[in-house]
């Protein structure tokens, strides 16, 4: 991801900044300008709690070139306790032990190296959490 795009994503990436629709209460990560449920345009921003559960998952064994050094890795969709869902790698757990419903929390880790440009990209990864 080019550097300008990374910079723009920093508030969301580092603080897990989300937004809750003032009209209907639906929460979004990342924040949006228009609610896709009620078309509301007013939001309250908040920092998401870092905890959630695995909704579905896979093990990526054939990655794109950018992630070739990391495969195989577990990937899942996480239902965050504050409402939004997001996609995340799931680490610090044996690949085959990831399960639907497994409690996780998000931590900040190195996600990928940019390749030729050399910039290292950081982002969230999910790790197992105790109930």
């Amino acid at each position: 991801m080019p550097t300008a795009r990374s910079w723009r994503a920093y508030p969301q990436t580092y603080r897990l900044e989300a937004a809750r629709c003032s009209k209907c209460g639906k929460a979004f990560f990342p924040p949006r300008l228009v609610c896709n449920k009620c078309n509301g345009r007013q939001f309250e921003h908040f920092d998401m709690k870092r905890t959630g559960k695995v909704v579905t998952h896979t093990i990526i064994r054939t990655p794109s070139d950018e992630f070739s050094g990391q495969a195989p890795f577990a990937l899942g969709i996480i239902q965050m306790d504050d409402g939004p869902r997001l996609t995340s790698q799931i680490v610090d757990v044996p690949l085959e032990d990831v399960r639907i419903g497994m409690p996780v929390k998000l931590e900040f880790r190195r996600v990928s190296s940019e390749g030729e440009a050399g910039a290292i990209q950081y982002g969230h990864k999910a790790v197992p959490a105790r109930d």
Binding site: M1, R5, A9, P30, V55, T56, H57, T58, I60, T62, P63, S64, E66, F67, Q70, F73, L75, G76, I77, L86, T87, S88, Q89, I100, V111, S112, Q121, G123
Partner: peptide, 25 residues
């Protein structure tokens, strides 16, 4: 979604695999 899926190393087989896991479950 390159910004919020691609950044995590998602591939198309990976996305459909996650649908498969949900459907099987």
């Amino acid at each position: 979604d390159m910004q919020w899926e691609g950044v995590q190393g998602v591939t198309f087989p990976g996305l459909y695999a996650m649908m498969a896991v949900a459907h099987m479950n």
